[in-house]
Structures are given as structure tokens and as C-alpha cells.
């Protein structure tokens, strides 16, 4: 709902040159209706500091969006008599259903890892069911394959293009986060961090929801909670449409 302008404000004072963040977004929920084909989420904010300070002194921002956790299975194909069949399998748990990371400058991995700004936390990494996969290199391949496949579905992106965060007047920033049509429903978290002199200051989090509405929600609930009724309805609707069409065209042909 675009008309609900949700603004979240966070203030914290950085000693010395008094830098802080004010952030906001235009949405607090994304609704999946019959014509949902993805949506952009606008995240904006301002460096809350003396406007006369040079841009460099205000620091950089990192924006991270995380979707609801999912269990993801990654399978590797192997040829059997010329046929490519699924073979080895690895199960990742607590994988965010959507992950997006962007920053105003390139941030080195050390800072990101230290502050747990990653797809999988250390704890989640320990819960991976590796199965037969033991070699670190092979495990690395599976991890990359998972990220690559999610990236192809627009569900995982580390956007290194800093220019996609617009900075206006040296004080205001905004960026659009593309939410694709394949997003899972559930709770999402947007985290915005302020980075000054390679040191990460605690940022601000806010949540938004992705949910089904209208006919999409009715059909999904029926299919999951009352599958027998849903199945019967689907069968009767199909039978009815078949009958109506046969009758209609029979009459058309007669005249």
C-alpha cells in the first residue's frame, strides 16, 4: 500500500562530529494480489549531522533486507549413462527467502562478517546438512550454487553498484529495492547501518510484511487448510466449465 507512508526514525549521536541517521520507507507491507508482478521498496534516509560537514565525514550506509527463513535443498547433477540426473544433495536451513545488500561504498567482507551482515550467520552455517559432501572446496561450490540459483530468481543480490543509492545534497540518500514476483510471504527486516572510518555504528531495523490478499489469499488458505474442499471445488468447477462449453457450442452450431 503506497498510500501508507511509513516513516521510521532512528537517531543516535556519534561523539565528536555528531553524525547520525534518519531512515524511512514508503511501505510497511507488500501485498500479493491477482496482478502482483513484483514491486519496488523505497528506502530513504538522511545523515543527521551538521550539513556543512564534508560528505566523507558523514560516513557511509549499508542497507540490508532479509526475508523469512526457509529450508533450501541444493542438488548437483551427475551424468549416468549420458543422462544428467540429480545426485548429491545439501540442505541449508534458515536461509532468508529474500536477501539484498547495497552500500554507498565498497565494504570489505571482514567488516560485514564481523557484524553478521551475511546471508547465513555462523550459527546457520553450522546447521547445514552436508551429507556426503566433505571437501571444503565442494562445500564452497554448493554454497555458491545456492547463492547463484537464488540470484537467478532475483531472491539474492549483493549489489555492488553504489550509484544505485542516490545521494542528494550530500545529506539525503534513497534507493529502490526490487522485490520480485517470486518472493515468499512472511516477515522481512530492513537494516540500515552507518559506517564511519571503517567502524560500524549500530544501525536501525524495521520490519515489513509480505502477505497475500483477496482471491490469492482465499485460494491459498483453502488449498492448505481445507484441501479436500478445495480439490472438490476445483473438480466441480472444471466439470461445470466443460459442461457449459459443450452446451454453448452445441447451441451455437444448431443456429
Amino acid at each position: 500500500m503506497r498510500n501508507i507512508l511509513a516513516i521510521f526514525i532512528s537517531l543516535f549521536i556519534y561523539q565528536g562530529n555528531a553524525s547520525a541517521l534518519v531512515i524511512g520507507s514508503d511501505l510497511n507491507e507488500i501485498t500479493i494480489g491477482a496482478n502482483f508482478s513484483g514491486q519496488d521498496l523505497l528506502v530513504f534516509g538522511a545523515f543527521y549531522s551538521d550539513p556543512s560537514l564534508p560528505r566523507d565525514a558523514k560516513g557511509d550506509v549499508i542497507i540490508e533486507v532479509k526475508g523469512p527463513p526457509q529450508t533450501v535443498q541444493v542438488r548437483k547433477k551427475k551424468p549416468f549413462f549420458g543422462f544428467w540426473l540429480n545426485n548429491a544433495e545439501v540442505t541449508f536451513k534458515e536461509v532468508p527467502g529474500f536477501y539484498y545488500l547495497i552500500s554507498t561504498t565498497e565494504i570489505n567482507d571482514e567488516i560485514l562478517n564481523k557484524n553478521n551482515i551475511t546471508l547465513l550467520s555462523d550459527q546457520d552455517t553450522q546447521e547445514i546438512e552436508w551429507g556426503k559432501i566433505r571437501m571444503p572446496k565442494d562445500r564452497h561450490d554448493f554454497m555458491n550454487a545456492m547463492k547463484r540459483n537464488k540470484n537467478n530468481l532475483d531472491l539474492f543480490a549483493i549489489n555492488n553498484d553504489s550509484t544505485q543509492i542516490d545521494i542528494l545534497d550530500g545529506n539525503l540518500f534513497k534507493t529502490n529495492i526490487p522485490i520480485p514476483n517470486t518472493v515468499p510471504v512472511g516477515n522481512y527486516t530492513v537494516s540500515v547501518y552507518l559506517l564511519i572510518n571503517s567502524e560500524l555504528k549500530k544501525g536501525y531495523n524495521y520490519d515489513f510484511k509480505v502477505k497475500r490478499i483477496g482471491i490469492e489469499s482465499v485460494i491459498h488458505n483453502l488449498a492448505i487448510n481445507f484441501p479436500l474442499i478445495y480439490g472438490l471445488l476445483a473438480v466441480f468447477l472444471a466439470g461445470f466449465m466443460g459442461w457449459i462449453s459443450a452446451e454453448m457450442f452445441r447451441r451455437l452450431r444448431k443456429t
Partner: peptide, 30 residues
Amino acid sequence: AFVTLLHATSTFAVDAVLAFSLILSSVIGA
């Protein structure tokens, strides 16, 4: 019909919106 019911109750994979669109276009096509 029976297979639809079995799938609806065990794999939860019957998509009514997809089925409706396919039926509508296929009866006319037929």
C-alpha cells in the same frame, strides 16, 4: 477428478487460477 483430489490433499499442488485460465482457453480452442 480423483487424481486432482489426491494431488490437492497430498501434494497441495493444484493451482485453481492456472487451471481456470487453461480450461477457459482450451475449451474455446477445442
